[in-house]
Computed example of a mutant assay.
Amino acid sequence: MDNPFNRTYEKPCGESRMKIRSVFDGVELRTEFQKIGIDSKFVPIIWKHLFLTLRSSNDWDDDDEWEKHIPFLPSSAYSFLRSNFKTPLSSTLHSVFHSSDNLTSKLLIKLQNGSFVEAVIMRYDTRLGKYAGKPRPGGLRATLCISSQVGCKMGCKFCATGSMGFKSNLSSGEIVEQLVHASTFAQIRNVVFMGMGEPLNNYSAVVESIRIMTGSPFQLSLKRITVSTVNYALFICIVFYDF
């Protein structure tokens, strides 16, 4: 029987680099800033103000909102943002479905290309469990299940997404935007890549999105992010190498 660990693998990767889709496409945004002489230190500042603004309000009227909500950027940065992003997010929240007990919320998110992906917020109260025979400390927590692809080529029989076939990879920013949308409904503590798609078939974007989520302004703990895969265990070792 063929042993996958005896094969020679290239590092898994996503689609080739495309035109920047989202302001949260970290690698692409820093590259574009470098081309026009803008210090990359402004990237996390943009993300911070954008995240705080969108988490509290979805009001974004026109191009001048960049100056209103994100202060102290170079004029060239404002020009770039206005010319490349008509709205702060490339995706839109199409609809939300809440369970009757309000513990689960399914977000249907429309991407810039017209495709849809799902993200699911799962809430739970840690005080309902017990530790050493005593009620656990804590309170209400929320985990976000996010998608990494539109469709999936793996064809798992137990998964509805597998019947769609593979459509496209999400960019790192499109993955992160699911967290931004979800944060308007709950304070997300954990993230699991168990939505649409096989994460390791979109490796580069998934790794970059995790780097963004564990940095400013999201500051998620790396140990609270889970990548679920049906790929070979060797690829999992590569993920650990990248972190």
Rank of each mutant, 00 (worst) to 15 (best):
S100E: 07
G155Q: 03
A119S: 07
R141I: 12
L140S: 05
L73K: 12
G129K: 03
M154S: 00
D101Y: 08
L108R: 08
L89C: 00
C152G: 03
I70M: 09
A142K: 08
P74Q: 03
A119D: 00
S91Q: 07
A142S: 07
C159P: 02
P135R: 10
T87H: 13
C159T: 01
I70A: 04
L108D: 11
S147D: 03
D125F: 01
R82T: 06
A119W: 00
S147W: 01
R141P: 08
V150F: 04
P137I: 05
Y124I: 07
L108G: 12
S79I: 03
L111C: 14
S91D: 12
C145I: 00
E65G: 06
A77V: 11
K134H: 02
G139P: 07
S105Q: 15
K153D: 06
S105F: 03
W66C: 13
F97C: 14
P88N: 09
S83D: 12
F80M: 15
G114W: 06
C152Q: 06
I146N: 01
R82H: 14
Y124H: 08
A77P: 08
L108N: 13
Q149D: 03
C156Y: 15
L128N: 14
G138P: 06
H94T: 00
Q112T: 04
L73R: 07
A132I: 03
C152H: 03
M154Y: 01
S83I: 06
E67R: 14
N84Q: 15
G138S: 09
S99Q: 08
V96P: 13
L81D: 10
H98P: 04
F158K: 13
T104G: 01
C159N: 02
G151M: 04
G138W: 10
L93T: 04
G114T: 04
F116D: 06
F85K: 14
T87N: 15
Q112R: 07
S95M: 05
V117L: 02
E67G: 15
A142I: 04
D125I: 00
S99H: 02
L103V: 13
G129I: 05
G114N: 02
A132Y: 08
L108V: 15
M154V: 02
L73F: 08
